[in-house]
Design a protein around this nucleic acid. Structure first.
Lengths: 263, 263
DNA sequence: CGTTCTATG
DNA sequence: CATAAAACG
């Protein structure tokens, strides 16, 4: 089975660029979207409830901002939107889906840049990371099968972005943000793409919209599917679909042995 | 000589739709624009200072809002932006141009609709009208040659809009607004288009942007060139150029005997 | 319905 | 550079 994550940068705009055709051609079982940037009622019916899919949305309270969504070929066994912190829940950043023995978290981690391109949102971002990490610590040590996928908004190591030197002070590659990802990996989470492909270079998931940056592949790898050790045993492939257009991010995926569903 | 008035509904957008081609083909001597909606420095050089034209701008303080501009083939003999009321001056609504013995006021009269489509701006609109009328009363009685042209934002009589009955409560055709135009005409101002063409019907200068309203000519005549009696003696033609596209308003013009300039 | 601005990324 | 909203008309 195949699970995708994609920051669509506005689902309505992405639909105009062919999202539904991509969806039907994707052979996906589950797709997690970030930055939906629409209330469900603002979506066309064809994109809100496409034939053959079960869909779930967790929008932000603020219109046109953030928001996550899940598309699944079979109905989810459970869905939960709250992480029990009001300040996080109102921004529509997390969906926790249960599929048999597998738990999938679809997450839009906060961007660290604030109002005037400053770093004022980094504390919120780091608190969000820490809260989720602590919330999931028990599941990890209990050997549960968990995927945390989405736009992490942080490149972990120099190999994960084209211009590491010039971005050491930029939110998304600052030491305090990278150290938080260290803590996830130290806790036991596995970066599925790196586990499958090792230190391959120049594989990115996001490119600035300025200039011809994507054509020149001057990008960042900031979208991940993190697997618990128990889930990682079922991962048979991990991919970055950088040929797929429609957003400033590209989709990523993992292929899993279906046995992962049977506890 | 030919003098035009046109509410361009954003000069930058209008330029993209061919404003400069229209300008050069217009045989205009003077063009007054309303709703420029740009600071001069936000305009391209080609539109701010086109070859062969002298240009003058009076923007609002608030960005992207209101603002008037004048294009003249020969340099103006004088230009004044203030009507000596701060609340009016900051909204960039008036330019007073002197061309020889002729005074031309290029005016963007306020829209009466407020924030929530309410009527909260009608008092401001009526005060603006009254202030300008009183300011010009002396010139009128002194026999000066004056044109007041622009977007008046009021249809005077039922003949001036396609749907008078259904708009009696709408700002733009309310009794208190129409009565203010009565006061201008009672004071001596002449509606140049009506003076030339009498009660011709279905001649409008503005159409809603919703639906196919312009194609069906469901419009309003709310742009006028008012002439003082002394100026009216030199008016040889008055036109509504409703075939000219580029805005939700169309240009209007008067043709004058050049002798109007020689006092 | 369309222009422009602002917030956000 | 792009998405979406808000204000205004």
């Amino acid at each position: 089975m195949k699970i995708y994550s994609w920051n669509v940068n506005g689902l309505r705009a992405c639909v105009r660029k062919g999202f539904l055709d991509w969806l039907d051609g994707s052979e996906a079982d589950v797709v997690g979207l970030q930055e939906v940037r629409a209330l469900p009622e603002q979506l066309t019916r064809a994109s809100r409830e496409p034939e053959g899919w079960h869909t779930y949305f967790h929008p932000a309270e603020r219109k046109g901002y953030s928001g996550v969504g899940l598309y699944s070929r079979r109905a989810l066994d459970g869905i939960e939107n709250s992480v029990n912190v009001e300040a996080f829940d109102v921004e529509g950043r997390v969906q926790i889906a249960q599929l048999g023995a597998l738990k999938v978290l679809n997450v839009y981690f906060p961007n660290g840049s604030g109002k005037n391109r400053d770093l004022s949102r980094i504390p919120y971002k780091l608190e969000f990371y820490a809260h989720l990490r602590e919330m999931l610590a028990g599941a990890l040590t209990d050997g549960e099968r968990v995927l945390v996928m989405g736009d992490f908004n942080t490149a972990h190591r120099a190999i994960d972005l084209a211009r590491p030197k010039s971005n050491e002070a930029t939110s998304g590659f600052r030491p305090e943000e990278r150290e938080e990802l260290d803590r996830w990996l130290d806790a036991g989470w596995v970066d599925s793409f790196r586990a499958v492909h090792g230190d391959v270079e120049e594989r990115y998931t996001w490119w600035s919209q300025r200039g011809d940056v994507r054509a020149r592949n001057v990008g960042w790898r900031i979208d991940y599917i993190y697997a618990s050790p128990a889930a990682m045993e079922f991962v048979v492939d991990a991919r970055i679909h950088d040929q797929v257009m429609g957003s400033d991010h590209c989709p990523i995926s993992v292929t899993l042995d279906r046995a992962i569903l049977e506890g």
